[in-house]
Every structure is written in structure tokens, then in C-alpha cells.
Computed example of a mutant assay.
Amino acid sequence: MSRAEAWTPSLSLFRSEATTTFRRWRTLALLGVLAAVPVLVGIAVRIETGSGGGGGRGDGGGGPAFIGQVAGNGLFLVFASLAATLPFFLPMAIGVIAGDSVAGEASAGTLRYLLVAPAGRTRLLLAKFTTTVLFAFAATLVVAVSALAVGALLFPVGEVTLISGTTVSFGEGLLRALAIAGVVALSLTGLAALGLFVSTLTNSGIAAMATTVGLLITVQILDQFPQLSAVQPYLFPHYWLSFADLLRDPLYWDQILRNLGLQALYAGVFGSAAWARFTSRDVTV
């Protein structure tokens, strides 16, 4: 058997999983909510600056990071929207998709029929995880594109002044925005693996989704207590906002690499746990 023939069942299974996931009304609703966040943020900043508020001064005040720069350059709405959605909206969407990936099939009674396919349990689990990661990239891109469109419509765009004070062209700013979107999506892979593991523990899709989102909220709360500073660097959301270092000149890679390494660790640990549980599980529904 050639390598192409060996990969055919896996690719077919992945295409099937991705198509099924992105055709669900729940998935489309999640993407719609994520697309609406930059619209709301942009309109709020526009109203604030139009009424003589301090949105364009650059002091930022309260609210998400970069919000103070949005009125001066619409491209900053991309950074502000990602910073606003990353703590809850984006990971909640990932938790819903990951938590329902296996448990939802078991709840609907379709899991055992999927296992009849020649791909087997390992490839099915890999297809589920890959689809969840694909959704993470799609969701992040939806936020970024929506923010870019709204920012260009409501505010001026042009050269970008970085956090370090260096000014770069709009084109380079777009490239940095694309890189930030990629880092944000990769930051959610650890949560995707955790949600997949939870999904293998139950036959209830709702329970798996609620548990994954509950764990997300709990870990984020723990990340706020100074008394837990010794363990916080090992919590998967700890370095999520490190993407801001891509807006420095020179680039600061230390926190970003720690974030990506931590996500890889979580993906490896919980992905292995999900595989061990799923491959030994007695599927009766």
C-alpha cells in the first residue's frame, strides 16, 4: 500500500468531520457571535470619540488592551478585539466544540457507527482534535477579519506605531496582525486537547461542554491570585496575552515561546490521556 493510499481514510474522515462541524447551526452561531464582538467594540469606541471622550488619546483608560489606539488607527481594532475575546469568548467557543466532539456523538447514538469506518479509533480521535484546532483558526480569523473591516470603515488606517514606539508601514502592521491571529489560535490548542479528553469521559455532550467551560473559568480565576504565583506559569491561559510582544521592535519571543511550549505540553498530555481513554473505552451507544 502506498503512502497516499494509507492516508486516504484519514483525510476522508477529517474532511467529513470538518464539514459536519462547520455546517452545524451551533458552530455558525458561535462564529456569528465572535464576528459581532469587533462590531460592538468599534461602534462603542466611535461613539465615545465622537462625543468628545478620550478614546483617541492613547491612554487607554479601562477596557481591553489597545483600545486607546483604535480611534487613531483602525488596525488596532484587530488587536483590541483579539484581546477582548481571548479571555472568554474564543476559549468558550473552543470548549463547546471540543467538549461535544466525542460526547456529542455518543449522546446522539452515532459514535459506534463512526467506529465501523476503517479509520479506527485513533484516526477518529485525531480527526476530532484536528477539526477543533481548525475551528480555533477559523474563529480567530473571523474575529480578525471582522475587526479589520469595521476598523477600516469607522476609523482612519495607516502607519502603525508599535508598543516600543517604532512606526511601521500599514502592510507590515497587517503581517503582524496575521501573525498575532496565528499565535492566538495556537494558544487554544491546549484547551482543545483538554476538552477532547473531557469529551471521552462521558456520553453527555452538554455535560462535557459545561465541564470544559467550567474548567476554563476555574483555571482563569486561579491565574489571578498572587498567592498561586508558583503554579500560574503552568496554567494554560497564563501566557495567552503574550501575543502583544509581536507589536514590539525588536520582537520579544520569550513569553510567546513559553506560551506555545505550554500549549504543546497540554496538547501532548491531554491528547495522550484522551487516546488512552478512547481506545480502551467500551462503546455501546
Rank of each mutant, 00 (worst) to 15 (best):
A181F: 05
I180N: 08
S146C: 08
F137N: 06
S169H: 04
V157N: 06
I163A: 01
S187A: 13
A147K: 06
V143H: 04
G151S: 08
G182M: 12
L154I: 12
F129D: 00
V168A: 01
V184L: 08
A185L: 11
A139H: 12
L162Y: 01
L126I: 15
V142G: 05
V184I: 14
L148S: 11
L126W: 13
T130R: 15
S187M: 11
V133R: 00
L124H: 10
T140K: 06
T132V: 15
P156R: 12
V133Q: 00
F170I: 11
T161Q: 11
F137T: 08
S187P: 12
T131E: 04
L174P: 00
G182C: 10
I180E: 14
S169K: 04
A149M: 10
F129G: 03
E159I: 02
V183Q: 09
A179Q: 13
V142A: 10
A181R: 03
A147P: 01
A136Y: 04
L174R: 01
T131G: 02
R176A: 08
T130Y: 12
F170V: 09
L148D: 11
T130P: 07
A139I: 12
L134P: 00
A179K: 11
A136M: 10
A149R: 08
F137E: 04
T140G: 15
A185N: 10
G182W: 10
L162V: 02
A181H: 05
S187N: 14
E159H: 06
G173E: 05
V145T: 12
V157R: 08
T166W: 07
V157L: 07
V150N: 02
A149C: 06
L162W: 00
A144E: 04
A181P: 01
V142E: 13
I180Q: 13
L153G: 12
V143R: 02
G171C: 03
L178P: 02
F129E: 01
G173F: 01
A139R: 13
F129Y: 15
V143C: 02
G171D: 04
S164P: 04
A177H: 08
L186M: 15
R176P: 02
S146Y: 11
V150D: 00
L124F: 14
L126M: 14
G171L: 07
T166M: 07
A144D: 03
A127N: 09
L141K: 06
V183E: 07
F129C: 02
V157Q: 08
V150S: 02
E172H: 05
S164W: 01
L153I: 12
V168M: 03
F129V: 04
A179V: 15
A152S: 12
L134A: 15
F135I: 10
S169I: 05
L126N: 09
P156I: 14
A138W: 13
L175M: 14
T167L: 06
L178E: 09
V157G: 05
I163V: 06
T132M: 07
A147F: 07
I163G: 02
G171S: 05
G158T: 06
T166S: 13
